[in-house]
Design a protein around this nucleic acid. Structure first.
Length: 374
RNA sequence: GUGUCCAUAGUUCAGUUUGGUUAGAACGCCAGGUUGUGGCCCUGGAGGUCGUGGGUUCGAGCCCCACUGGACACC
């Protein structure tokens, strides 16, 4: 994997990451495809929308279909017919967010499947092995995502564990190779909740271990947005300039703009896809709940200026009808629009950074977002 | 034509046994929420002259009578 920085504008950066499955430009938004599918979309549609890299999730894919099936299929790229870059989250977040029954030890984490209750044990080593079988271009280390709020004591101990796991992931990564003939990269994850000192130590220690890229985790879990931005700045001040920075799980359009300004290069978030399936549309002028009665007879598109398939072909009234009727097509059209919008947003950021106009461009976007849909 | 049963929110129904504060629920509807994904879920809100008319009673969704509408059975 190679990262090349082409322009900086203040702390904001525009660049490109090249993998054996192609290049994605940064700042990048990565649609979430947890189970080997960005829900409702085909690969060709993802390309059409402008997605250059997508996410998978080791925890979910390990439980189903399992690494044997993925190995047999020749890896996730072939299995799902996506030939672009794939990043896999380790599944640390899932173990702590959707499993009540888990036991944390220095060696690893024992947990019960959310599907059938069966017992499993994740270690830093076998998570790397799982991601090797998946064949993702970028692999994430196993980490613990502490809840918010948590006290400094807990955050410190949790971070020590995460750092220890990061070292072990790195060792396992170095002593193994991929199964499918393409190279894979490994990213570390900064933790430390909302405590500046812990964040600094975490980022510094990860840099010492050395990774191809660095993620900032444990944010957007309930803390105030200003705290999140403060933590992002602390991390990007320390993390190396020549490696991509990835803010995990973030976020709203506003969150993304603020983080880009602070030097973040990569994002993923379930909001545009999950909320699409609940009838929430993201537009330049804020969010639209398509189920609101005011759209009942509105034959205008969501956004006249949007170039996505949904806005070019369908009215708000039709989209509302589809959601009210719980028709499958509504989920797909909403996903198409929201992901198109997120790609439009980061593309705009890249152009603005390249033209050294990021700050004024961002100000315009924030003003538009605040006007609220008419 | 005769008999039995039924009628409560937009819908499906509780509540009638034993008359007693402001008639409830689910779904639907209206509006919020959702940040390293289960299409889920969570939080509010609006909505009822209890088929119609009369009677008994301090008091009727509940008891009595008539009427209207419906289901079923028998002619």
């Amino acid at each position: 994997m190679q990262f090349s920085l082409s322009t900086t504008d203040g702390n904001a950066r525009a660049g490109a990451v090249t993998t054996d499955h192609g290049t994605f430009q940064t700042p990048a938004f990565m649609p979430v495809g947890t189970l080997g599918t960005v829900k409702t979309l085909r690969s060709s549609e993802l390309k059409e929308i402008g997605a250059q890299i997508i996410l998978g999730n080791a925890y979910h894919l390990y439980l189903r279909p399992g690494t044997d099936t993925l190995h047999n299929a020749g890896g996730l790229h072939k299995f799902m017919d996506w030939d672009g870059p794939i990043l896999t989250d380790s599944g640390g977040y899932q173990i702590f967010s959707l499993t009540d029954l888990r036991k944390l030890t220095p060696k690893g984490v024992k947990f019960q499947s959310h599907l059938d209750g069966s017992s499993h044990f994740f270690t830093p080593e076998n998570v790397v092995d799982i991601e090797r079988f998946i064949g993702s271009d970028i692999m994430m280390v196993l980490d613990e995502c502490p809840p918010f709020p948590c006290d400094a004591d807990y955050a410190e101990r949790s971070n020590q564990l995460t750092l220890d796991w990061a070292k072990r992931c790195r060792m396992q990564f170095s002593s193994t190779t991929g199964h499918y003939g393409h190279s894979q990269a490994l990213f570390g994850i900064v933790q430390g909740s909302v405590f500046p000192d812990i964040r600094k130590r975490s980022a510094g220690a990860l840099c010492e271990i050395g990774f191809e890229g660095y993620a900032i985790g444990g944010l957007a879990v309930g803390e105030p947005a200003e705290k999140m931005y403060e933590m992002v700045s602390i991390c990007t001040d320390i993390l190396p300039k020549d490696a991509p920075r990835y803010l995990m799980g973030v976020g709203t359009p506003e969150n993304i703009l603020e983080a880009i300004e602070r030097g973040v290069d990569m994002f993923d978030c379930v909001l545009p896809t999950r909320n699409a399936r609940n009838g929430m549309f993201f537009t330049r002028f804020g969010t639209v709940n398509i189920l609101n009665a005011r759209h009942k007879d509105d034959l205008n598109p969501l956004d006249e200026a949007c170039g996505c398939y949904t806005c070019r072909h369908h009215s708000r009234a039709y989209l509302r009808h589809l959601f009210q009727s719980k028709e499958i097509l509504g989920l797909q059209l909403a996903t198409v629009h929201n992901l198109h919008y997120y790609q439009w947003l980061v593309r705009g950021a890249r152009v603005a950074i390249s033209g050294s106009t990021f700050v004024s461009w961002k100000k315009e976007q924030l003003a538009d977002l605040a006007t609220s849909d008419s």
